[in-house]
Design a binder for these strands. Structure first.
Length: 514
DNA sequence: GGACGGTGAAACTTCAGGTTGCCTC
DNA sequence: GAAGTTTCACCGTCC
């Protein structure tokens, strides 16, 4: 199909977007990096002159999601004022919600997004503009799979509102146009391959099958895997068997499963060797962490019980797992800083420190940077600081923290089973700190509902340091610090009722909200 | 003559994201 | 590999 579009700039994306708005339609622009999504949104917004009250209001909301807005928040707010937004995993949940909601309402006209928006979120638009079909990978810039292209263009056309949807690819030349047409528009999507043979996956599933008593003998295990999609696809039975054998051996060595071979079997009974999960193995399987992670935790905890540890020790242990990946990237200028941290905290490490010549050294440095990020987070550094110093955005911070929380929980559980009581306390404390991004002294206050890191710090600063202090302090002072509504609510939580007549009334009519 | 500002080219740096998993007030 | 950012050389201008 051919459509004519007015050329107001030499940037085709801007021309297309302007045309879309003129038609009173909406568009999603897909780019290949977060930075590009932001830049594109900004470039577009600069060409737009509008002063919509709703947009200004929305822009304010977007800016207020954190106690102190980051540069990213400010940039987003500026774009939204013009009805343009960018959307990627670095935004906070609230910001993403606001953008999606207001795009559906038609208030936001254009979203510049990374692939996040093509998955999960149901957000159709009249026009989809795919600016980049190549993305950086290990082998340099590579074309994205056809499947992904289909995912992008699947966003085009709103079933109830439009009769058609447009998916437009931006190309640099005629030759490229022809090539991309062949590959993406007329081409077939790729085959799907099983990832079952990837070691962490295989480890997890072998343990899970044994732990749930779904299979117990070697034969049963082989037979199970031989019916999987993986076996179907590769049909290299020998290789698969060898891999499973290896996994069984490891699980046994790590004491997650026990083989009957080691037990006494009477002479007249030739029993087939069976596998059973140990108590530890069962729990590891329930926790759904990679058995290797669990094993590393156990080794680390054993070391930890024999020496002085600090938050860094445990944070570094969880930053060395596969689950926490991707690790923060160490930038060229940061090498010195990281090396310095290694020197400073070296004695607190619980794992092996690879030498500079080891291939995993690079990952080690990245794990240290990730650890330092966590450490700054629990020392109450704000989002702007973390963005500047670690290049990690609010949305990414949340995602990392959720995984860290889960891992620390798993660590705590393992600790119970292997009976290392002395460390459990440290883990529990750390978990609260990681979850909330607070120093240890705020732990008592954070237990109150509606009190997060910012308010807890405010209270502490005002000499209200414990629940007892909260009870003692009078309402007017608390109101000064937290505002009336929160102050009353907090007082209520510690058993003091200051409900005013007004709020009581509201409550009766069902309008009262916290 | 030096501070300053503007400009553009060259050099440098960095590059998507996610699902499940657990417990709980 | 290329977009986006930073750095730097260069020039003109002003005081």
């Amino acid at each position: 199909m051919k459509i004519k579009i007015e050329e107001i700039s030499d940037n085709p994306v801007i021309n297309l977007v302007t045309d879309t708005i003129k038609k009173k339609k909406q568009a999603i622009v897909f780019t290949n990096t977060k930075r590009s999504a932001e830049k594109t949104a900004e470039d577009i917004s600069k060409t737009i002159k509008t002063k919509d009250k709703k947009l200004i209001e929305l822009s304010g909301k977007v800016l207020e999601v954190l106690s102190k807005p980051t540069k990213q928040c400010e940039r987003l707010a500026r774009c939204i004022k013009k009805g343009i937004a960018f959307h990627h995993a670095g935004l906070t949940e609230k910001q993403k919600e606001l953008i999606e909601e207001n795009f559906r309402k038609g208030i936001i006209k254009i979203i510049c997004a990374t692939p996040t928006l093509a998955y999960g979120v149901d957000l159709p638009a009249f026009r989809v503009i795919i600016r980049d079909l190549r993305r950086y990978s290990q082998r340099g810039l590579a074309y994205i799979p056809v499947l992904e292209y289909l995912q992008f263009s699947g966003r085009a056309g709103r079933p109830k509102f439009d009769n058609e949807g447009q998916s437009i690819i931006i190309t640099a030349s005629k030759a490229e146009k022809k090539k991309l047409k062949e590959k993406y528009i007329y081409g077939k999507p790729e085959d799907i391959y099983s990832k079952l043979s990837v070691e962490p996956v295989l480890r997890t599933y072998v343990l899970s099958l044994i732990s749930s008593d779904f299979v117990n003998t070697r034969e049963e295990i082989f037979s199970f895997f031989s019916k999987t999609f993986y076996a179907n696809q590769f049909s290299d039975e020998y290789e698969l068997k060898a891999k499973i054998e290896k996994m069984l051996h490891l699980l046994e060595k790590w004491e997650f499963v026990k083989s009957s071979k080691k037990e006494f079997i009477s002479a007249d009974k030739i029993e087939e060797e069976t596998y059973k999960a140990t108590q530890l193995g069962k729990r590891v399987s329930e926790l759904y962490i990679d058995p290797l992670t669990a094993h590393n935790f156990i080794e680390a905890l054993k070391k930890a019980s024999k020496k002085k540890i600090v938050a860094f020790s445990l944070l570094q242990t969880i930053s060395s797992t596969l689950e926490i990946r991707p690790l923060l990237r160490v930038k060229i200028k940061e090498y010195d800083k990281i090396e310095e941290a290694i020197a400073r905290y070296g004695s607190y490490f619980l794992g092996r420190e690879p030498s500079i010549y080891d291939p995993e050294y690079e990952d080690f440095l990245r794990s240290i940077k990730t650890t330092l990020f966590f450490q700054d987070w629990i020392n109450e550094k704000d989002e702007e600081y973390l963005l500047e110093n670690y290049d990690i955005r609010p949305g990414e911070i949340r995602a990392k923290i959720e995984i860290a929380d889960w891992l620390l929980y798993a660590m705590e559980e393992i600790c119970r089973i292997i009976k290392l009581q002395s460390i459990i306390k440290d883990i529990i404390k750390l978990r609260i700190r990681v979850k909330n991004g607070i120093r240890e002294e705020l732990i008592p206050l954070i237990k109150l509902k509606n009190i997060g890191r910012a308010r807890a710090r405010k209270l502490y600063f005002n000499e209200i340091k414990t629940i007892g202090d909260v009870i003692k302090v009078d309402l007017s002072k608390l109101t000064q610090i937290l505002g009336k509504k929160t102050a009353i609510e907090i007082k209520k939580q510690v058993g003091q009722n200051f409900e005013t007549e007004k709020t009581k009334e509201k409550k009766q009519t069902g309008l009262y909200e916290f």
